[in-house]
Amino acid sequence: MDKSQNLKSNSFIELNARERARSILDTGSMRELLGPFDRVTSPWLKEQGIVTQADDGLVVAKGTINGQSAVVLGIEGSFQGGSMGEVSGAKMAGALELAAEDNRKGIPTLAVLLLETGGVRLQEANLGLAAIAEIHAAIADLRQYQPVIGVVAGTVGSFGGMSVAGALCSYMVVTREARYGLNGPQVIEQEAGIEEYDSRDKPFIWSLTGGEQRFATGLADRFVQDDVDSMNAVIRELAKAGVPASLRDQRIDEFLALLDSIDTNVQPNSAQVREIFGKGVKA
C-alpha cells in the first residue's frame, strides 16, 4: 500500500470557514462582502466581556459555481461555537435575500450554507432568534428559484434553529464526522437524564445524529468523504441538478405518520431508526 497517499489527503474539515468557501467557489471567483476589514462586529459580546471577531464569525463569499452566480455563507465554528448572533444572522439573511432579488432580476444565483453551529448565540438571545427566523424565510424564498445547499462537515455539527434551516434547504450534504440534530447532545442529556442519553458516549451520539445515520435515514441527501475535491464535486453536481422535485417540509404528513407509528416505550437504536425511516421517507 502506498502510504504517501495519506500525506496528500486534503481535508475539508481542516479548513476554516473562509477557506471552505473559497474551496467551493470556482477558482479565483471569490470576493467577500462585509469581510473582516469592514469590522461589523457584535455590539453585544464586548459588553459581556467576550472578545469579538471582525466578521462576527460569518463569511459572505460571492462568486461562481459552474460559472453560475453563487453565494457561499460560511459559519466559523471556532468562534463562539458557530453561534448565530444579531450581526452574523443578519449577514446570512441579508445575503440570501439579495440572492433571491438577483434571481427575480434574471440573474440565477444559488446559495451554499456551511453549517458549523450550535444554533442561536445565547448572549444575544432574541436578536439571534429573530435573525434565524429571517434566514428561514429567506431560504424558503430563494429555493423556489435556485438550489440552497446545506453542508455539515464537522467538527461542530449543526444544531438548534440552524438545523431547521438545514431542513429547509433544497439539499443537505454531510460527512462521516458531521452531527446534525435539533437539540445538542448535552441539552438532551440535561433534559432527559444521562441514563437515556449520555452525551459523552461518542459512538452512541454519532449512531443517532451522525452524518452516516442522517444519510441512511434520508434526512441528508449526500454523504461525502472529508476531502476538498469530493466536496467540491458534490456541490457542483447538486448545483447542476437545480431545484428538487419535492422538499422535506412539504412532506410533513408523511413524517408525522412515521413518528406516530413509533413505540416510544423502547429507545430505538441506530438500526431501528433506519428501519422506521426507511419505510417511507427516502425521496
Binding site: M1, N6, E177, R200, K202, P203, W206, G211
Partner: peptide, 15 residues
C-alpha cells in the same frame, strides 16, 4: 495510516 489496525477508544472517535 494504520490500515484500520488502530482501534481508537470511544472518547477519541468523532464518527
Amino acid at each position: 495510516w494504520s490500515d484500520g489496525l488502530y482501534n481508537p477508544p470511544a472518547k477519541f472517535r468523532s464518527w
